[in-house]
Amino acid sequence: MDLVTAFHRSLDGFTTRVAQVEESQWGAPTPCEEWDVRTLVNHVVSETLWVSPLLSGATIAEVGDRFDGDQLGDDPAASARSAASAASSAADEAGVLDRTTHLSFGDTPSEEYLNQITADLAIHSWDLAVATGEDPVLDPEVVDKVGDWFQEREQLYRDSGAIGPRAPVPSDAGRQDRLLGAFGRNPDWSPDV
């Protein structure tokens, strides 16, 4: 599977799960200990809003604080769909993977940036699903794509504090559970544990 397709599928998986959140679930806990469901969704929507300007060559300074604060408003599902639509269009532009993205830690190939966002969308889709009782099974091809990409980056992510310690998973665990463990997620997490 090519990267842009994986990105689109990750976006779709996340926005589908946002649309399924019930009104009573916005304050529910998530595997991200400091975040409830609304905070998690706001984080991902905000991150998704950054995709279009960054892939178009904008710098962090040029974007400024435009995507700080609440990005969900009164209709989180519509906000998620709108952000996803803009990000999808940006990812579909010709030559997008050959560009340079100006991130807070330095200039980065756009291909690497899109891999990072694809991974974040996939992992947070799982976070949202288990927090709200939705289907936690991720697209297996996206899991493979993200898992292959993340293998050589896991320690760098951990050393930078972007992820927590590796969660133990059985040696015979499936690819999704191994990926979740690599990102510091307990595949058996539930709001009741």
Rank of each mutant, 00 (worst) to 15 (best):
F7D: 02
V193N: 15
V142E: 05
A94K: 08
S160Q: 11
T16C: 01
A173G: 08
A78E: 14
S52C: 04
G133W: 09
S160Y: 04
D139C: 13
R166D: 02
E22Y: 07
P168Q: 14
A90K: 11
E22G: 15
G64C: 01
L103P: 05
V41E: 03
V130Y: 01
D65L: 07
G161S: 00
D75E: 15
D177Y: 07
M1P: 12
S24W: 04
W50P: 02
H8S: 11
E34A: 11
W126Y: 07
L103V: 15
V4Q: 10
E22A: 15
A6Q: 12
P31F: 06
V137Q: 13
Q20V: 08
M1R: 12
V146F: 01
A131V: 05
S125M: 04
V63S: 03
A87I: 09
S82Y: 05
D192S: 15
A94M: 03
A94Y: 02
E111R: 14
T132P: 00
S82K: 10
G174L: 09
G164N: 07
L97Y: 03
T39P: 00
G174K: 07
R185F: 07
T108G: 01
V146K: 00
R99F: 04
G184A: 06
P165F: 00
P140R: 10
T30E: 00
L72K: 06
A6S: 15
M1L: 11
I60P: 03
P170G: 04
G13V: 12
L121T: 00
P76M: 02
S24F: 04
T39H: 05
I117E: 08
S88C: 13
W26H: 10
D172C: 13
V18C: 11
A91W: 04
P140Y: 06
V96M: 09
F183K: 00
W26D: 11
Q116C: 03
A162T: 07
S89P: 02
D92I: 06
E134R: 07
S10N: 10
E34R: 09
V18T: 14
A86F: 07
G69W: 05
D159I: 10
A167P: 08
A129N: 09
T15D: 14
T101R: 10
D74R: 09
E62A: 12
G147N: 11
E141F: 01
G161Y: 01
A84V: 00
T101I: 13
A80K: 05
A83S: 10
L121K: 00
C32A: 13
S24T: 11
A86M: 09
